[in-house]
Amino acid sequence: MDDRRSDETGHRDVACQTENAGGHQSSPFMSLGALASYHPKIESICIKVAHYVDRVFKGTNPAEYPVEQPVIFELAVNLKTAAALGVTIPDSVLARADKVIE
C-alpha cells in the first residue's frame, strides 16, 4: 500500500496497519484518521489577536502587552478510527469532547 495516499480511507488503513493513529494538535487531521486532537481553540486566538491589532492601531505600544498562553482548548475524538483500531474511548472522555466524529 502506498503510505502517501491522502484520501480518508488510506490514512485510516495506514493507521490500522501500523496501529499508530496518533493524537494531533490540529483538528484537520481528524478527518484523515487521527484518533484524537487536543489543541487551543483557534477562534479564541484570532479574537485575541484582533484585540491586540486594534490597540496597536490606536497607538498603544506593543511592548506593553504581556505574553499570554491560550486558555480555551478543544478536544476532538474520532470514533471511526477508534473502532477500526479496536480501541474503546471511555464515556468520561466522550462527555468532555467538544467534537466527536462518529
Results as ranks from 00 to 15, higher is better:
1 M>A: 04
2 D>C: 02
3 D>T: 07
3 D>G: 07
3 D>C: 00
4 R>I: 01
4 R>M: 04
5 R>D: 10
7 D>F: 03
7 D>W: 07
10 G>K: 02
11 H>P: 00
11 H>D: 00
12 R>F: 00
13 D>W: 01
13 D>L: 13
14 V>T: 02
14 V>P: 00
14 V>Y: 11
15 A>R: 03
16 C>S: 12
17 Q>D: 12
17 Q>M: 10
17 Q>G: 06
17 Q>C: 02
18 T>L: 15
18 T>S: 14
19 E>M: 10
19 E>L: 05
21 A>F: 11
21 A>G: 15
22 G>H: 14
22 G>R: 10
23 G>S: 13
24 H>P: 00
25 Q>V: 12
25 Q>T: 12
26 S>R: 05
26 S>H: 07
27 S>G: 00
28 P>Q: 08
29 F>A: 10
30 M>H: 10
31 S>V: 09
32 L>I: 00
32 L>F: 14
33 G>V: 09
33 G>H: 11
35 L>V: 09
37 S>G: 14
39 H>P: 02
43 E>P: 01
44 S>Y: 12
45 I>P: 00
46 C>S: 14
46 C>N: 08
49 V>H: 07
50 A>Y: 06
51 H>R: 09
53 V>L: 14
53 V>G: 01
55 R>K: 15
56 V>A: 06
57 F>N: 12
58 K>Y: 00
59 G>P: 01
59 G>T: 04
59 G>W: 02
62 P>Y: 09
62 P>F: 03
62 P>H: 10
63 A>P: 00
64 E>Q: 11
66 P>H: 08
67 V>F: 15
67 V>A: 15
67 V>I: 15
67 V>H: 09
68 E>L: 09
68 E>N: 06
69 Q>M: 12
71 V>S: 14
72 I>P: 00
73 F>A: 06
74 E>V: 11
75 L>C: 08
75 L>H: 04
76 A>I: 03
76 A>C: 12
77 V>Y: 05
77 V>R: 08
78 N>A: 05
78 N>K: 07
79 L>V: 05
79 L>T: 09
80 K>Y: 09
81 T>F: 13
82 A>W: 05
83 A>E: 15
84 A>F: 01
84 A>S: 12
84 A>Y: 02
85 L>D: 07
86 G>K: 07
87 V>I: 15
88 T>M: 05
88 T>D: 07
89 I>L: 02
89 I>W: 02
90 P>D: 09
92 S>D: 15
94 L>S: 05
96 R>I: 01
96 R>E: 15
97 A>F: 02
97 A>Y: 06
98 D>W: 04
100 V>S: 08
100 V>M: 06
100 V>A: 05
